[in-house]
Design a protein around this nucleic acid. Structure first.
Lengths: 346, 346
DNA sequence: CTGAAAGCGCTTACAG
DNA sequence: CTGAAAGCGCTTACAG
């Protein structure tokens, strides 16, 4: 491996001059620059990132901490991780994946050993134990998610409340007044996943405001109980003319449950949902739904992180809490009904 | 941040002695060791990984390269990535996630800048363009997947051929002689995903050997065409008494298609499958199937990589090509039929 | 068993 | 505009 010294010798200049063209932080005459670049080319020289990190105190690495609670639909995390890596790369950063069970330990380890310049935390919950560890580390960070209290840490997330309102409004505008709400399991609520609460609270509030009846159905904690629970919910739907879904697995399994019950969408029942867009695409989920926006959220998170990482020490930056507006993709799963009778419009 | 010099001063010893207890490569008398450990504790000292990397030429980081072809079911990759990170961590390594579109560029970049000690490549295809780049880099590596020609690189994968044989044998043992084979799309075959070929070839060969009729059904390249294709396949199944599935999305959507057709499993039709275990678990896919073994494969891959990374330069290591034996989980989706009539046994 | 010195490969004030 | 020197925080022969 060629070093900066080899390049300097080859080009007949000093190491500092080579460094100047590498960093681009100093002016070098075109001629010597040219000579140096040729030497770099010839020797296949590349900067040793460890040495550079030691000299600059910047690793150009971002740590991404995902906590696999087991409760969550882990495949749905993948798009966010990949989108984060892409966004980081566009800014010149690599991504260290921290998925070990002991997330607090991971944060301590990589920050103390100076492995990363900044951190992104995924699947945040209220009172997340990772936040104090983050605070103690003093490393720039951003949350991909929006806990009740982000403790001064920047956070970026989809606006789940707005998403819920828009879906409810959509149903209302089509005449639906009685809606079944398939929501995340009690364990997810209890774990403090704030997106679950935000969606739920906003959906119920919006429905109340519009004078709609919304019957919540809790998805079971155990995956194997879900098909049965869906079947029950659909059978016991009463006069509901529409279904609002906010649970990954429920969105995937609902088609089967509806078919089992001999119901057609949207003829017999309208459906709107919020679930992972990637999953929906691959499985052709046929429901009008809110996009999960992994790419935009990841880009927003990296932008917020860059702002912190590149801030001067004396900059007093305000906390960024960014809620991205939901976008709805219409897949024709909502049908207009007459509000009074609850029956499909002919 | 405390440095090794601070610790040395605090403990009243030299920096080299501190280093000796840090690395554990030299004997230090218990008394001085004790003093040093107390100083480390007191100052909250942690080794600066960049400095250590520079001094030792080892980063303790493994690069994981995933190529998101767009064709594949990307959420199914997540379990492998997480399992790799876990296995690496157990061996003291962190994982750098490389998911950018230009995988070859990523390999060049992280190896030339000495960011990693080794690499793991996921979703390998035949004639994978990443292999030459890997070879050129000279960095230890392992493939998670088994291309036709691994070009001297260690590779670990599930034994897809054995998996196919065992599933076919299982159907045969239960009397099935006419089987529908829902297989990956032509684009996946064309892309050279060897697991797709290995499963397919072995399934067809085993069936022929056992005198079974197997009718392959190509899943469509476009996700949105899959539901229709499944419906067609099920309707036109002829005298088939069982379905063999090797396609993630097909495994997920088959229940709906069967329900649509008014068919019950296993009463009207038996089903066996190979799909992501995690996905199957979360969605409660009700089919007897081969486990995808993300954890065992990842552990095997990291073990193989460690062997290379820790080998002495003059060790002439043989190439490791490891195919893990498939394990079948019985979910009662196979029913015994009488071979002659093809009708269910009453 | 411990320490002084050199070195890993860069960057960055500071002179000139 | 270029270079010599010091320094980033470790590890590792080599003496003693």
């Amino acid at each position: 491996m060629a070093t900066i010294g080899d390049v300097a010798r080859e080009a007949g200049v000093s190491r500092s001059t080579v460094s100047s063209v590498l960093t681009g932080r100093k002016f070098v005459t075109p001629e010597t620059r040219e000579r140096i670049e040729q030497a770099i080319e010839k020797l296949h020289f590349t900067v040793n990132s460890g040495a550079r990190a030691l000299a600059t105190s910047r690793t150009m690495v971002i740590g991404v901490v995902v906590q696999l609670h087991g409760l969550e639909f882990s495949p749905a995390l993948a798009p966010f991780v990949f989108a984060l890596a892409d966004a980081a790369r566009d800014a010149g950063y690599d991504v260290l994946m921290l998925s070990e069970a002991d997330a607090v330990g991971a944060i301590r380890r990589v920050t103390r050993t100076r492995r990363v310049d900044g951190m992104v935390l995924l699947n945040i919950v209220d009172d997340d134990p990772r936040l104090p560890a983050l605070e103690a580390s003093g490393v720039p960070a951003v949350l991909l998610g929006m806990p009740r209290d982000s403790r001064g840490v920047d956070a970026v997330d989809l606006d789940f409340a707005a998403a819920a309102r828009r879906l409810v409004q959509l149903l209302h505008a089509h005449g639906h007044r009685d809606v079944l709400f398939l929501r995340w399991s009690p364990a997810m609520f209890a774990a403090g996943h704030s997106f679950v609460h935000r969606f739920n609270d906003a959906a119920l509030a919006q429905a109340a405001e519009l004078g709609m009846r919304v019957t919540p159905v809790d998805c079971p904690d155990a995956a194997e109980d879900l098909p049965g629970a869906l079947a029950d919910a659909v059978r016991d739907r009463g006069d509901a003319t529409a279904v609002l879904v906010h649970d990954e697995a429920a969105a995937v399994l609902l088609p089967t449950a509806l078919h089992d019950a001999g119901l057609r969408v949207p003829d017999d029942l309208s459906v709107v949902s919020l679930h992972s867009s990637d999953l929906g695409r691959v499985l052709s989920l046929p429901y009008t739904s809110v996009e999960s926006e992994a790419v935009r959220i990841a880009q927003g998170a990296i932008a917020a992180l860059l702002r912190r990482m590149t801030a001067a020490p004396d900059d007093e930056l305000g906390v960024v809490l960014e809620l991205l507006p939901p976008r709805i993709t219409d897949r024709g799963s909502v049908r207009a009904v007459t509000p009074d009778r609850g029956a499909p419009v002919r």
